[in-house]
Amino acid sequence: MKLYRINALLLKYYYLTVSRIDRLFDIVYWPVIDLFIWGFTGFYIQGLSDVNVLSMLLGGVILWVFVWRSSQDIAVFILEDFWSRNLYHLFSSPIRLSEHLTSIIVMGFIRSLATFVILWPLGILMYSFNILQISPLLVALSVFLLTLFGWAIGLLIAAFLFRYGQRIQIIAWSVTFVLSPFAAIYYPVSALPPWAAKIALALPPAHVFEALRALIYGTPVNVRGLWYAFIASLALFIATAYFLVISFRHSKRTGLLAKGD
């Protein structure tokens, strides 16, 4: 891997971010709207019960951004190259797949952090909710685990894109939404029906959000659950990266990479 080639693509994704209003909306608009909706909802419900619903909901909103952005940015930046029929020029250059993905992953993480930097003070300003007050260590750990999971999902979507082309681009927008009910972002796993709880416990994010809620409620954190989240996310990341490499080779055999559609 060559750093100057990764930097070249970081520059490209920076240009894409600042020159497209919808790429800026990804960072600011949708997360802030989410914060408003769930913040006001939490405010209302909190008045009806003793449970610290506001912290639970806002903590979920702010941290879910890392899964959402990490996965979607990988898919969307690859799709951008499909849309402008630019894959041909990109992969006829000296860039390697690993360098391409590293640049997207880094840009995705920077964009996630940008969203976090906006939501964190906004939470304090509007709802007196400071996520770092829960536990800076757990927040940092959550960011790491959720980002790792997000990357794994992003690589999976990228693998499907390289295998089947942009005709399946709908999965780029829908996968995180499909997963979100089972991620137990805004409610405990125990609130789910048994079949859904089984799915939730198999997914790493549910364990992260359970740990967050445990700290908010002042109950013991399930450390084994966090270990599971780490191992499962890492295993998923390795598996999806492998699948992506296979899909990329497949696209070179079938001609999809050259045609770019």
């Binding site: 080639r5 070249a8 520059l11 490209k12 240009y15 951008e80 402008s84 000296p94 770019g260």
Partner: peptide, 19 residues
């Protein structure tokens, strides 16, 4: 095949020069 269509000519060339 085109270069990135939302980038300017100069921006595209800068990216490829660095690549």
């Amino acid at each position: 095949s085109w270069l990135s269509d939302v980038l300017t000519i100069r921006q595209n060339l800068k990216v490829y020069a660095r690549l």
